[in-house]
């Protein structure tokens, strides 16, 4: 069951890497967060821990409902082009993503050592999601794509924490959720500002400060 969810997370991440327009990216992000929610719920059910149920609930409210909604609203309100502006086309991006998958597997093997296959696969999956997020941040040009890339990286780290080290202490988890919540709101605010001053959200063209 764990592996099915992990597989679904991987698929949603690949979908994000090949997405060409912002709404598609947000939709895949929602799928990914939903899978993460299922995974946490499963662990909570398995360990009978009340804390984890709360964490799962917060995850659902924040990352499946609230943040995607906020991002959709931002797209509508700023009326900028919905194209993501790809530095690398979808086919090539997919190749990169496959490369990342192998890389994170190799990294996980070196970290854990052969033998503990289940743990290696979990670690590799989590590292891959982090790398994919980084890829989105670097090779997509709009400010919104950068926010989503950051959230994807954060999802990867959440996956790592919950599947590998049995989750972080409860109040740390809550603090990090609060932090993500605040940072998305603040970044959204700055997207509005950028759109207001530059009439676009193409961060590649933000080049007034140099040297």
């Amino acid at each position: 069951m764990q592996f099915i969810i992990l597989f679904a997370i991987l698929v949603s991440t690949y979908l994000m890497v090949i997405a060409k327009r912002t709404p598609a990216l947000i939709r895949s992000f929602r799928y990914q967060s939903f899978c993460l929610f299922l995974a946490t719920l499963m662990i909570a059910f398995h360990d009978h821990e009340l804390d984890l149920y709360v964490v799962a609930g917060l995850l659902f409210i924040l990352k499946v409902v609230f943040i995607p909604q906020l991002l959709y609203r931002t797209i509508k309100r700023i009326k900028a082009s919905q194209e993501l502006g790809l530095f690398i086309n979808p086919q090539l991006s997919l190749l990169w993503a496959l490369g990342f998958t192998y890389l994170s597997w190799a990294f996980a093997t070196s970290l854990v050592g052969r033998g503990d296959e289940a743990r290696i696969i979990m670690l590799a999956g989590a590292f891959f999601v982090v790398l994919a997020g980084l890829f989105l941040m670097i090779f997509r040009m709009t400010a919104l794509a950068q926010i989503i890339g950051l959230l994807v990286m954060e999802n990867g780290i959440f996956l790592l924490a919950s599947m590998v080290s049995g989750g972080m202490p409860f109040f740390v988890e809550i603090a990090i959720f609060f932090d993500v919540f605040v940072s998305v709101i603040i970044m959204g605010f700055f997207v509005y500002r950028i759109n207001k001053f530059f009439t676009h959200i193409d961060v590649n063209k933000l080049s007034r400060l140099k040297g």
Partner: peptide
């Protein structure tokens, strides 16, 4: 313009 750009780069 400059300060918004700097803030964005900083935060990201």
């Amino acid at each position: 313009k400059e300060s918004v750009e700097a803030a964005w780069k900083y935060i990201i």
